[in-house]
């Protein structure tokens, strides 16, 4: 749906991260264009999740560059990368457990420097209430979109695994990112909620977010992604549509075949 080739939104060049002797990511190159929905696939241990950690700033790369929206973001702390417009969800959902679902959503709304002590003390109460109401309305609208509205007053730790996933999506949707990194959003989710999550991802894309999706469920990847990047042993082995890549011997050997690369 997004033809023409403007400058890529995300451009990864020579990305490298070794843990001792383990070459988790070893010279990884790929790009993602704005509006695309790209799948990142590969066998277990191929370095997909490490790439997400590196891109989102939770890990610092040993080498390589990451250009996001024209800016080099490699090695920046996570909050700066978030501010640049890159959100991620976690392979293991990380809600803020002892806060309500509503509070989880309110926190996801980017603070943009408004969370200071002085603002808390000096803003007149009427403006505090108005800002709070606006934030709440936005959070509740998203909650409804992601089927969390009835759960809005529950503690986040009471949510089921699938509901936590939905909460992750709702939080990402509230941040209105340019790029969302989704790390195995379907893992451990029952079929009913999988449908919800697929819908959630489509919602994100409709709202103008570019998506990089890590997923093992190839049927789902084929259904939803414009293009896939295949990672093997820390490198990109192939890119293209999944239909093309099914016949690619490297991909078959590493991923679709019986024997994994690990």
């Amino acid at each position: 749906m997004h033809d023409g080739a403007p400058a890529p939104l995300l451009e990864v060049r020579g990305l490298r991260k070794h843990f001792g002797g383990v070459k988790a990511v070893d010279g990884c190159d790929f790009e993602v264009r704005a509006g695309e929905m790209v799948g990142l696939i590969g066998p277990n241990g191929a370095g997909k999740s490490t790439v997400v950690e590196l891109l989102s700033g939770l890990l610092k790369p040993d080498a390589g560059t990451v250009l996001f929206d024209g800016r080099a973001i490699q090695g920046l702390p996570p909050h700066r990368i978030f501010a640049a417009g890159l959100s991620r969800c976690f392979q293991l959902a990380k809600p803020w457990p002892r806060l309500s679902v509503l509070e989880n959503l309110l926190i996801a709304i980017p603070p943009e420097g408004k969370d200071t002590i002085w603002r808390a003390l000096l803003t007149p109460p009427s403006r505090v209430r108005a800002a709070e109401r606006a934030a709440r309305d936005r959070a509740l609208a998203i909650a409804e979109q992601y089927r969390l509205y009835p759960l809005r007053n529950d503690y986040a730790y009471t949510l089921s695994g699938g509901q936590r996933r939905l909460l992750e999506f709702a939080r990402i949707a509230l941040t209105r990112p340019k790029l969302a990194l989704l790390d195995e959003p379907m893992a451990g989710v029952n079929p009913v909620l999988q449908v919800e999550i697929e819908r959630g991802i489509r919602n994100l894309v409709e709202d103008g977010t570019t998506v990089l999706l890590i997923e093992h469920n190839l049927g789902f990847v084929e259904r939803i992604c414009d293009r896939v990047i295949v990672m093997v042993e820390g490198r990109v082995a192939a890119t293209g549509s999944l239909a093309e890549l099914r016949d690619n011997p490297i991909v078959q050997d590493a991923y679709l075949g019986v024997v994994g690369a690990a």
Partner: peptide, 27 residues
């Protein structure tokens, strides 16, 4: 007042899960 403000909420997010708080833009 501070507790209920965005600042207080950010602090609690850091307490509850700092990795997620950082991923959602908290320094």
């Amino acid at each position: 007042r501070i507790y209920k403000s965005p600042f207080g909420r950010s602090l609690r997010a850091v307490r509850e899960n700092d990795t997620a708080a950082a991923a959602f833009g908290r320094n």
